[in-house]
Design a protein around this nucleic acid. Structure first.
Lengths: 183, 183
DNA sequence: GTCTATACACCGATAGAC
DNA sequence: GTCTATCGGTGTATAGAC
């Protein structure tokens, strides 16, 4: 089994349990590998697993969200691609955001730079798209922050209330919310 | 030292580290009490501490947010009291939401009912206020959910980006966002 | 590359002195 | 009501066989 093949299972455990709750026993069970085998692939142990999982998630965000936002289509179409892929990335609201989950406790100190950077890239890229649609910088900045914050908040609600409806609604209205004239 | 006096320190640890990350060593250090002393106050241990902390937080929400929303003033004034006290409750965006933090990992199973109930009470109470201002039920429901979700999302952003500006902005605009005619 | 076995620290929890 | 000392279990991490 290659290193890449176990990343999805590791990711799932970190998303569900957080850094401290993601024990080697759980990571071992999720991957079907013994603890020693995990150390063969990730010599620095749990911290490395989290780092690799975080990097893998950042790459997926880059490919499925950032890159489409930077493409050459109409702003509204690019944002629709984003929301479609956000829905996929969070399994329709059923899975937590790895970035948000790792911004807690010990992991916050370990991965603060990566997390901060990931959110900032997303927001900054969104700002560019919104400005292309004719909205001024400060307004675009606020709308971009609002978009991310609504996605994150709706994920909290989804797991707290076992209800993905607000998540779906947030995604549905995001294009107009971001691009509506004046505001 | 009485049981009530240590609750604030215990709360701080759970908010910062989550349930799994809130070790007895940290809880002991934060309160200045030895582990055995903590067990004198909370015989069922860590789970009881979390339960008491959660109950205490629910009481604070009830007193500083729910009760004012149910008072007899103008809807806009009641909501302004809410946002002012939300700002206090989260230390201006610098502290995480205990409910959101405990909706993860092992704690999610332990406290799911309490967490779900707390969010539902908040949303339902908000719906009543918004409907009093003349907004129809389904619209009021969506706006109430949006309010909570924006607060939660802005707290995620605050701790991920070390930036409480979006949190402050969300609170500032909440009254009009909830009560604006038609929409 | 995976396993069993194990080292050692820390976890939650308890006993018993004061 | 607080402490020191300690228990059994589990945590992360390693050694070494296959």
């Amino acid at each position: 089994m290659s290193k890449e093949e176990v990343i999805p299972q590791l990711t799932k455990v970190f998303r569900q349990y957080g850094y401290e709750g993601a024990t080697l026993a759980r990571l071992s069970e999720a991957t079907g590998l013994g603890k020693a085998s995990l150390y063969h692939h990730f010599p620095k142990g749990k911290e490395e697993m989290a780092a690799v999982v975080l990097k893998s998630m950042s790459d997926r965000v880059e490919a499925s969200i950032i890159e489409p936002l930077r493409s050459s289509g109409e702003p509204v179409d690019r944002i629709r691609v984003m929301t479609k892929n956000v829905d996929k990335l969070y399994s329709g609201g059923k899975q937590s955001c790895l970035l948000a989950v790792l911004a807690l406790g010990e992991a916050k100190n370990l991965f603060h730079n990566e997390i901060q950077n990931a959110f900032n890239v997303w927001i900054d890229t969104l700002v560019q798209v919104v400005m292309e649609a004719g909205i001024e910088r400060s307004q675009a900045q606020q709308r971009a922050e609002d978009a991310i914050l609504e996605i994150q908040g709706s994920l909290i609600l989804a797991r707290s209330l076992d209800n993905t409806v607000p998540f779906k609604r947030v995604l549905e209205r995001l294009p107009e919310e971001l691009l509506l004239a004046s505001g």
